[in-house]
Write a protein that binds this DNA or RNA. Sequence first.
DNA 1: TAACAAGTTGACCGCCCGGTCCGCTTATTG
DNA 2: CAATAAGCGGACCGGGCGGTCAACTTGTTA
Lengths: 199, 199
Amino acid sequence: MTTTRPLRADAARNRRSLLAAAADEFAERGLDASVADIARRAGVGKGTVFRHFATKDDLIAAIVLDRIDELNTAGQRLLEAADAGTALLEFLTVAAHQRQQRDLSFLHEAGGVNAEVARVREEMYRTVHRLVDRAREQDAVRADITGTDIILLMCAPNYVASYVPDAPPDLWRRYLAIIFDGLRPEGAHPLPHPPPTSA
Amino acid sequence: MTTTRPLRADAARNRRSLLAAAADEFAERGLDASVADIARRAGVGKGTVFRHFATKDDLIAAIVLDRIDELNTAGQRLLEAADAGTALLEFLTVAAHQRQQRDLSFLHEAGGVNAEVARVREEMYRTVHRLVDRAREQDAVRADITGTDIILLMCAPNYVASYVPDAPPDLWRRYLAIIFDGLRPEGAHPLPHPPPTSA
DNA sequence: TAACAAGTTGACCGCCCGGTCCGCTTATTG
DNA sequence: CAATAAGCGGACCGGGCGGTCAACTTGTTA
């Protein structure tokens, strides 16, 4: 294990502003936001970005890692809830709310390379599966959906809402509600296609 | 009106291969696919692309125009169907199937500038509104959803399925079915957010 | 406070993109 | 078949990107 000495005070401060600036910039402009813009927003030089994060992808990975971790923590907590259906809905609410801003759904795509991201993501996926299993056992969701389905549907409400030009910030709630109604057992019609196995 | 003389035979052929190649390339790689790659795939020089389409955006607009037109035609036809609920579901099926490949949802974004695209799109939107109104009158969908909701949800099944690495080509059917179940009146829970007005 | 390592910076590099341009090719036409 | 213009192609351009580097500044430590 590499025991790294603590960052210098100013360096630590810069690192924080950089992460915040990058999160904002990515949220507003998507992953195409330029490193130069992020640096400007954080009030540092471009070189500083690359001192803290070897590549742009590493910067993205650092942010995604945080988000996934928060999400996983929330999920773990919700596993304790008595009502598994409400717990699942709340998990999806947290997931959507966390990135209510523009599409951060790169959560799935980003850091396909980065091992750490892959690890934490797998962990979060396992939590989701457990949440779904509990909800299914309590007949709070239809019997024919899987954890993978929910993982895939997780980002859909934000995606849908993102097409509205000047959308109110919580428009996604509307579409989460519609989709969640589609997950309930009442009035469910059989699904025409089996669930995907991977992802 | 500008009466343009007919294209030369080879030029017409090139135009067709170009449109096909561009559609494929965009479908596979998204809108970031480079003009050079499209030209190569079509077996022509890069200059030829710009002879037929003044800018890359114009090329995109030409493709999107076709797609929207097809969609609108299908919608018009389905307005005649007796069962408005089934008609709406089939419309969404056509919409998803048409771009079963990777995200062509730029349907909404693309050609925000192009007047022709805007016109045809508005027309298609009107058709969707009529399909939804008919379905609502027949109680085939819940009372609290609007045409705009369906327009927004239209691309969601493909979006969701696109996250699965080697997804079977019609995985979207599964998610369309789930979402459509959420649109039915049976077991509908009240929506927490009013529908968007624009878009 | 002196000395050093850690951190910062912006000019710079190579790359790839959309778009231009002009010399060449070729379908069309009488 | 000759003449012509429509069409073609690829070298080229400016710009913006991610990433590098060497000269400079600054927090830290004894």
